[in-house]
């Protein structure tokens, strides 16, 4: 039997148990060094943590409030990015229009922009005297800075490129002949997008959403510049950590950082397992 007849379960299926392959030292050594480089600072936090006073510090209401706000805003920001970023990625990957290269470069601007500058830029647009914000304030009496919505805006601004780049890559890698097949079966472009394209690039979208969420969760500079810092309203975990350090309470900052890390790693690991088993 040739490969055409054999079921193609090998692709995407659970990895088969194989004899361990020898990893070349030229790859293994830098790989381990890289891992160490990434993990050591985390170990530093763990070692430095004031374990004795940990339970008491964890139950402080301020910490939990900031944590809840962080998870909520990062999640909403990710949803906003999905809603706007996936169509944008589609446009970049599939549509042909003049200046597409420029648009793609512009999409990555928030990546290279220092987040604080991003926050100032957001103020200049959405602030009370900003290009759009002034109009919003005058028309609806609604301003974004110093609100939880403002936090979401700042996080979405900084995190969206991660989603767009991941989804665009997935779209470029996807086989467009499936979309042609859908068209021959009577599906218009929108139906093809929702019923065929999106499911095909779902792993890429998921990976992008994870990156986006993680970036939003750790967002600091744009948030504090654009949305300010007030407990329960705009003070996310990174802001609380920074403020605690500023107050000279290094132990407290370490505890907050560990909480943020633990929660995010737990959520990401949980999601990953779910995706892998369902894929």
């Amino acid at each position: 039997m040739t490969s055409a007849e054999a079921p193609t379960a090998a692709r995407g299926g659970p990895p088969r148990r194989r004899r361990a392959q020898r990893v070349p030292a030229a790859l293994l050594v830098p790989a381990l060094a890289g891992l160490l480089f990434l993990v050591l600072p985390l170990a530093g936090l763990v070692v430095r943590a004031p374990w004795a006073s940990l339970p008491q510090r964890l139950t402080e209401p301020g910490a939990l409030t900031a944590l809840r706000l962080s998870v909520q805003t990062a999640t909403v920001a990710t949803l906003v990015c999905l809603l706007l970023g996936v169509p944008l990625a589609w446009l970049l990957a599939r549509a042909r229009f003049p200046g597409r290269r420029l648009v793609r470069a512009l999409v990555t601007v928030p990546l290279v922009l220092p987040p604080v500058v991003g926050g100032v830029a957001l103020l200049l647009v959405f602030g009370r005297r900003g290009l759009l914000g002034g109009w919003l304030d005058a028309t609806f009496g609604f301003t974004l800075p110093f609100t939880t919505t403002g936090v979401v805006v700042a996080e979405a601004f900084v995190a969206m490129p991660f989603l767009v780049i991941a989804v665009e890559g997935a779209l470029r890698g996807a086989d467009t002949r499936y979309e042609e097949a859908a068209a021959t079966l009577g599906a218009g472009r929108w139906t093809t997008f929702t019923h065929v394209t999106l499911p095909l690039v779902a792993p890429g979208v998921a990976a992008g959403a994870v990156l986006c969420w993680a970036r939003a969760l750790g967002e600091f500079g744009a948030t504090i510049t654009f949305a300010g810092n007030y407990p329960g309203v705009t003070q996310t975990m990174p802001l609380a950590v920074y403020q605690t350090i500023e107050g000279g309470d290094l132990d407290g900052a370490v505890v907050l950082s560990l909480v943020l890390l633990t929660v995010s790693v737990a959520i990401l690991a949980g999601l990953r397992d779910k995706w892998i088993t369902s894929a």
Binding site: F146, N229, E246
Partner: peptide
């Protein structure tokens, strides 16, 4: 206040 800034310049 609407915000508690991290430094006076903020």
């Amino acid at each position: 206040p609407v915000t508690l800034e991290q430094d006076v310049k903020g």
